[in-house]
């Protein structure tokens, strides 16, 4: 795997922004009432993320360290405005259902986080691949959460009736509490199956430390075991 593909793998699996890093949860919880909303939010964030990463990486030697946060925000906000206007013009329905969360992509911590953690330290091409990886990881997570919420809460996926007609939708799942239930369950499944994420990675090699059966690298038992 070359270093470009590694970035994409990293964004989708190893450091998935939602299920592993747990950042950008506000739009995740708020807009995933259906799978199509997840697609829209995920793709628009991906576009902003990739473009902002490229520009910030290109400008990283010009931006003075002391004003890097305002500079990054200005770059992100410009791209968000472009995406916002494009969506209003070409996908008015989606724009309507995502509402305030499109302009709020500016303050999505995935974008600022990647700019700070990656784009300010690496070249533009690598940063672009990092943005693509993180964006795809984010989109997949949103689609998964949206699809499960739509399935349980409305009996449909992408607007197509899946459940039999006699199924009574559990409407709490398309309301706010349902987002927390689904996110928690999917994260738990990710942990349980020991998917190759950054937090699960090294645990497979060694026996479980102490009484905890968790997988966290930062677990006290893990550190204690390491010290021995």
């Amino acid at each position: 795997m070359n270093k470009y593909m590694e970035r994409i793998y990293n964004g989708i699996w190893k450091e998935n922004p939602i299920f592993v890093q747990m950042i950008g949860l506000c739009p995740t919880l708020a807009v995933t009432t259906s799978a199509i909303n997840g697609v829209g939010m995920g793709l628009s964030t991906t576009v902003v993320l990739v473009l902002a990463n490229i520009l910030i990486a290109a400008l990283r030697k010009i931006i003075p360290d002391s004003v890097r946060l305002p500079a990054e925000i200005v770059v992100v906000a410009s791209f968000v405005t472009i995406v916002d206007m494009l969506m209003e013009g070409f996908t008015p329905d989606l724009y309507e259902s995502l509402g305030i969360y499109i302009p709020l992509i500016v303050v999505n911590c995935i974008i600022l986080g990647r700019a700070e953690a990656y784009a300010m330290k690496n070249n533009a091409v690598l940063s672009a691949f990092d943005g693509i990886g993180m964006g795809i990881g984010f989109t997949i997570a949103l689609i998964l959460i949206g699809a499960f919420r739509e399935l349980i809460g409305a009996g449909m996926i992408f607007g197509v009736q899946i459940m039999p007609a006699s199924y009574v939708p559990v409407s709490i799942f398309i309301l706010a509490p349902g987002a927390f239930f689904i996110l928690a369950i999917l994260t738990a499944v990710q942990n349980k199956l020991k998917m190759p994420s950054a937090t699960n990675g090294s645990v497979k090699k060694k026996k479980k430390a102490g009484g905890c059966s968790g997988d966290c690298l930062s677990c006290a038992g893990h550190d204690a075991a390491k010290a021995e």
Binding site: V170, S171, I172
Partner: peptide, 10 residues
């Protein structure tokens, strides 16, 4: 309350 929110009609 979970049921009240989920199945308001019933």
């Amino acid at each position: 309350c979970f049921l009240l929110i989920s199945f308001a009609g019933l």
